[in-house]
Computed example of a mutant assay.
Amino acid sequence: MENKIKAFIQEKGIKISYVLSETGLSKSYFYDVMKGKTIPSLVNARKIAKGIGEPLEEVFPQNQYPIEK
Rank of each mutant, 00 (worst) to 15 (best):
residue 14 I to P: 05
residue 17 S to I: 14
residue 55 P to S: 03
residue 15 K to F: 06
residue 23 T to R: 03
residue 5 I to H: 03
residue 26 S to R: 03
residue 36 G to A: 08
residue 68 E to T: 12
residue 32 D to Q: 15
residue 23 T to Y: 04
residue 21 S to V: 06
residue 37 K to M: 05
residue 56 L to H: 00
residue 46 R to P: 04
residue 33 V to Q: 06
residue 36 G to R: 08
residue 40 P to R: 01
residue 59 V to G: 01
residue 67 I to C: 07
residue 48 I to N: 02
residue 53 G to R: 07
residue 45 A to V: 02
residue 28 S to N: 14
residue 66 P to V: 02
residue 2 E to M: 00
residue 63 N to G: 08
residue 2 E to A: 00
residue 17 S to T: 15
residue 9 I to E: 07
residue 2 E to H: 04
residue 25 L to R: 02
residue 65 Y to D: 12
residue 10 Q to Y: 01
residue 52 I to K: 01
residue 37 K to F: 05
residue 34 M to A: 01
residue 53 G to Y: 07
residue 53 G to A: 06
residue 35 K to G: 00
residue 30 F to M: 06
residue 17 S to L: 15
residue 55 P to Y: 00
residue 65 Y to H: 08
residue 18 Y to P: 04
residue 13 G to V: 04
residue 53 G to I: 03
residue 57 E to K: 14
residue 25 L to D: 01
residue 28 S to G: 05
residue 37 K to Q: 12
residue 21 S to A: 14
residue 43 V to W: 02
residue 34 M to V: 01
residue 19 V to T: 09
residue 66 P to R: 00
residue 63 N to Y: 03
residue 45 A to C: 08
residue 62 Q to R: 13
residue 25 L to H: 07
residue 19 V to D: 03
residue 15 K to H: 09
residue 68 E to V: 09
residue 33 V to P: 11
residue 62 Q to A: 06
residue 16 I to N: 12
residue 44 N to D: 15
residue 1 M to Y: 06
residue 41 S to E: 07
residue 27 K to N: 04
residue 12 K to R: 14
residue 5 I to W: 01
residue 26 S to P: 10
residue 36 G to H: 10
residue 30 F to G: 08
residue 41 S to Y: 10
residue 64 Q to D: 05
residue 25 L to W: 07
residue 7 A to D: 15
residue 49 A to E: 12
residue 11 E to Y: 10
residue 55 P to L: 14
residue 59 V to Y: 03
residue 23 T to L: 01
residue 13 G to H: 10
residue 31 Y to C: 05
residue 52 I to Q: 04
residue 11 E to I: 01
